[in-house]
Design a protein around this nucleic acid. Structure first.
Lengths: 341, 341
DNA sequence: GTGAAAGCGCTAACAG
DNA sequence: CTGTTAGCGCTTTCAC
């Protein structure tokens, strides 16, 4: 039975209904301290009958503890982030902590606003994508006094600690793998996102490693908005028209790479003999394509689990040891679009 | 400058630093009531210098108002839900409300837990996917006394109000469209998810409309887990091996339909002459496939915006009028896999 | 325009 | 094992 009134129920209501003090009711509801079986049952029954839902706001204020972990990511529409979330959730579900998501749309100012908003709820920890933030954001994070894990990237200096991969290194390794197969006229396609620092770093590492072998990117193309698959296809066509000599296409994500694959196949081009291609991210979705795309796993789930473990460990023991930088190692999967026999 | 102490800053700190009473500081920080320009500046300066972040927990407890809207969805890994979220966010960004996401993994008990957890933060409203919930969940929602919008589905009775499409109707309409093109040996493929009520209703509507014309599904196949694209491909192969006579394949989502398309094309089957196919959801991602898949738009963004508008309207004015059920109309897009010339 | 007092609903800390 | 007391940090209300 619910209350007729519109006023939400309080501990006092349960206390009165059960004839037990508020304090003891609170103990029962939180499973804290010793309470006799008889009292416990009386309380639970009363709470259930009333339909009481505790007020965490009051609880948090009184106990000075909030079991929330702020997770701040650029977007939900790129499957990478939901996958990281999965890793985080999986770990936090074993604890009493709960993730709360904030989305920044890759905008530093929005990140700042979201962060401010979330910190004002006094979470127990923060997991935030990337190492690049506004000064104000950095200051807030430092001043918050709670564990902060910056994820996805290790090329830089973390505020507190970081878990991710080196995108520069990832770019370099892909470049080396491509050169090793004897490709030399290489085209690059990616998103037009000056604020996607990880994509930028990958690109920098890529060109750097090519340069070391005296190779330069033959041509490049950037897109924004729209269906990535369609864009990948479109850009690939444009690029091949312009530079028919190209023998390799490197895409900054798997979805546009899949589009490129479609286009190459439609044109009846020999893959990977005449033209090779590779993407980035190892999206599970891509299995089932006519050819297995070469790609590089970004260790998304693992980043999530590791970050959550660090937060959880440090929340339980503020003096716990932890690594300042956890750099995971992404692996190239050659599929059948990169390795010439 | 941050405080040396580990203790988070309070209004009192800002008050002392600026020489203005806590009350007035609070007024400035919330832009409430009249404060002289001079005082305002002093306060803002002090707050900024200290790096003060307000404590919403205390604020919410005192004001009895929380600007959060709980959004409860089955999953983030199905792009449908991030798209609904976009619609919600777009609208709420214009207000002072903020969405907070909870994920249920399609499990009623988890939904119940998540709901309990979220309601305990006393949000201003709830947006929740589907019309099917445990009795306890329904009771909580009713007792909460806040606006509740059930989204995505209108086949049933909402607790408070609902915005969505009729999946039964969607299934029926697709069936009719298929029959109209003269297809008659129809295979169905979908997820093995007894708890995905919307997929179930679509299937029911589909078979019902076929039955009305004396047609029965020739064969069906369900999958769970793994890459949807790969599974779609696999199931399609299996199904065609088993029933080479099939002339139409209806898939419960676009991703497996895309896998099916790959398989049919690989087998060199004439589409849509020999075999037609259709999916569901109108995922933008699919543009760029070699053939434009027939599908049906689920009105995801619109559902999100409409739901958020209702919440926002009712939060601003508890007596505001609102429609109990908003049924949107999904449209079939024929692409080039359903319409025989 | 500004301030003082009185809680919001709960829990820490202590007393029994 | 149970109850009492005193806040948590802010906002409401009312007084000046």
């Amino acid at each position: 039975m619910a209350n007729d009134d519109t006023r939400p129920l309080t501990l006092r209501d349960v206390s009165e209904a059960s004839g037990v003090s508020e304090m003891t009711v609170s103990r029962v509801l939180r499973n804290r301290g010793d309470v006799s079986q008889a009292t416990r049952e009386k309380v639970l029954e009363a709470a259930k009958a009333l339909g009481y839902v505790p007020n965490k706001i009051a609880g948090a204020l009184a106990s000075q503890r909030v079991n929330l972990v702020a997770v701040i990511i650029p977007s939900l529409r790129n499957m990478v982030f939901p996958e990281v979330m999965s890793g985080i959730s999986a770990v936090l579900e074993e604890t009493d902590l709960q993730p709360v998501v904030g989305v920044t749309d890759y905008l530093p100012e929005k990140e700042e606003r979201v962060l401010y908003e979330m910190l004002s709820w006094r979470p127990s920890g923060v997991i935030i994508a990337g190492l690049e933030h506004t000064d104000a954001s950095k200051a807030m994070l430092k001043a918050s006094g709670i564990p902060v894990v910056e994820i996805m990237d290790t090329d830089g200096t973390p505020i507190d600690c970081a878990v991710g991969i080196s995108h520069r290194r990832a770019g370099r390794e892909m470049a080396r793998a491509i050169l090793k197969q004897g490709y030399e006229k290489i085209g690059f396609m990616g998103t037009k996102m000056p604020l996607d620092h990880r994509a930028r770093k990958r690109f920098e590492g890529f060109t750097e490693a090519l340069a070391k072998e005296g190779v330069e990117i033959a041509t490049q193309e950037f897109y924004s908005g729209g269906s990535a698959l369609a864009k990948g296809r479109e850009m690939t066509r444009t690029m091949l028209d312009r530079e028919p000599e190209l023998d390799f296409l490197y895409y900054s994500n798997d979805m546009i790479a899949a589009g490129g694959l479609m286009e190459l196949m439609a044109q009846g081009i020999d893959i990977p003999g005449r033209v090779g291609l590779a993407g980035f991210n190892g999206v599970e979705l891509l299995q089932g394509l006519p050819r297995q795309l070469a790609t590089m796993d970004a260790c998304r789930t693992e980043i999530g689990t590791k970050a959550a473990q660090i937060i959880s460990g440090r929340v339980n023991d503020p003096n716990a040891e932890f690594e300042r930088i956890v750099e995971l190692t992404p692996k190239i999967s050659y599929g059948d679009t990169l390795k010439r026999r």
